[in-house]
Design a protein around this nucleic acid. Sequence first.
DNA 1: TAAAATATTGGACAGTGTTCATTTTCGTGG
DNA 2: CCACGAAAATGAACACTGTCCAATATTTTA
Lengths: 180, 180
Amino acid sequence: MDEVGFAHFSAREVAKRIGYSIGTIYNVFGSYDAFILAINGRTLALWRDHLVRRLEKVQQDRLRAAITAYFEFATAHRHAWAAIYDFRLPEDAAPPERYQDEVRAIFDIVVAEVRAALAPSRKGDAEAITRSLLASVHGHCVFAMNGTFAMLGEKAPAEAAWDRVQEAVSAMTPGQRNQR
Amino acid sequence: MDEVGFAHFSAREVAKRIGYSIGTIYNVFGSYDAFILAINGRTLALWRDHLVRRLEKVQQDRLRAAITAYFEFATAHRHAWAAIYDFRLPEDAAPPERYQDEVRAIFDIVVAEVRAALAPSRKGDAEAITRSLLASVHGHCVFAMNGTFAMLGEKAPAEAAWDRVQEAVSAMTPGQRNQR
DNA sequence: TAAAATATTGGACAGTGTTCATTTTCGTGG
DNA sequence: CCACGAAAATGAACACTGTCCAATATTTTA
């Protein structure tokens, strides 16, 4: 997946490379969608691992380190990372519990960091704020990876994301105005 | 495209529905990628049109209206909107000039609105700030559309995006600290 | 060792993008 | 009205895809 990307990924090709027949993959995973979901779940686990390792090495500037880790992983595994978002389940179907847990595990790590950076009176909103900041950082990462930023002349996407996070966290500091 | 989404889109099916043969589509567009790019370019034009119409109707809260228009279009044309980001050109190739112009046209509209909301001393940074705010809003929209926000319990994505934009613009108001 | 359970196979099917020699259609000058 | 050249449209052929599933092979159990 990381080699060819979601668009050119092929279950048949995987079967060929691991020395099994195509039927076996379907027996094991049940469907193409489930197969992709398993791969993306693994990518999420690798991503979380990368994030944890980066945070282990740092005392200060932990939010900054988290953002850097976000961009690092996306850059190092562009295709596998993009596949997480390129793939979409059928309208109705919800992702399996395991997959959701993996997403929430990453989320929880970031929540802890955000909460630590917030003023005491705002720690209760840590989850909502984290969802929003994660989305912001993700948007910057998407535009960096898909060429939108290049088109618009942005040359330091991670720094821009960091600026936005700093602003938000600053606004949540004692003696500030913004709500939510 | 808007009907079936990028993953299930088929040039052959299009040919069938418009009463032409598959060969004709290739004669006209040259390749599948070019075909998709033409469709996505049209989607961008429709998106810009929607944005313009929404801004025409408003005097105050224009930034807020722009964000709402962003989410409105993505919601009303989920598949076509997603296709803009699901499709990726081969690593090296750059999108055709026409496509880039369409992206920049939308960008320019937003820049004007952001500039108007900024303090005079910051108007020079309007483009960089707009790139970043667009990315933030985009990230919120992506998470809203692909189910990530649902997984994490976020119920008001557009409002969260608006909060982040307000914070950023507030920080760029006279008597504030943040740089960049 | 025999029987039952599990794992693996690969052919068949309907679909895809892509190419391109062939055919059809159209506009124009005689 | 016809003929001829240019432009437009065709669809068969190719190599690929996901999906299914009866048949086969392997392993475990009795």
